[in-house]
């Protein structure tokens, strides 16, 4: 069993705290920009998670040089570079969509948008 006792693996506790904060923002907030920001917080927590995994106690940066014996695992760093790019694309696309939503509906609150959509649905049925 992995020991999740309190101070031992402190950074993982913070990672999951951050993860839950991000998830909560996505679920609880109606404002679409806040939802996108929540997604970002959620993703960043995963980045921190990977970087924590890569850390080797007493290790330095993985650079080939004399006298460096212990170094952090560079692979998760590379993976997270990729994940950051993916996250950036997601954020850009999400915000672009929010702009288009604002242009065509005039609001960016999810609950109000839902009401507007239902209204359009009903009108479509009567027409």
């Amino acid at each position: 069993m992995v020991d999740l006792s309190f101070p031992g693996l402190l950074n993982y506790w913070f990672v999951f705290l951050l993860m839950l904060i991000g998830l909560y923002i996505v679920i609880a907030h109606e404002n679409l920009i806040k939802k996108i920001v929540g997604l970002n917080v959620f993703q960043v927590s995963v980045f921190v998670f990977y970087i924590s995994v890569a850390k080797v106690k007493g290790g330095t940066a993985p650079i080939l040089a004399d006298g460096i014996e212990v170094y952090s695992n560079p692979l998760p760093h590379v993976l997270i570079l990729t994940a950051i790019v993916v996250g950036l694309a997601m954020t850009a696309l999400g915000l672009a969509l929010v702009v288009r939503v604002q242009e065509s509906f005039g609001i960016i609150e999810d609950d109000e948008l839902r009401a507007l959509e239902d209204q359009q649905e009903d009108e479509g049925n009567n027409a």
Binding site: V26, K35, I36, Q43, G94, R100, V101, S104
Partner: peptide
């Protein structure tokens, strides 16, 4: 115009799904 909100909601849920997968893979790698 409802395509925009549909895409945005898909984006939010889809990103959550993909990120969940990355968390799982991270744990396996660990």
């Amino acid at each position: 115009r409802r395509a925009l909100t549909a895409a945005l909601r898909y984006l939010i849920l889809g990103t959550l799904g993909a990120t969940f997968y990355v968390i799982g893979i991270g744990m396996l790698y660990q």
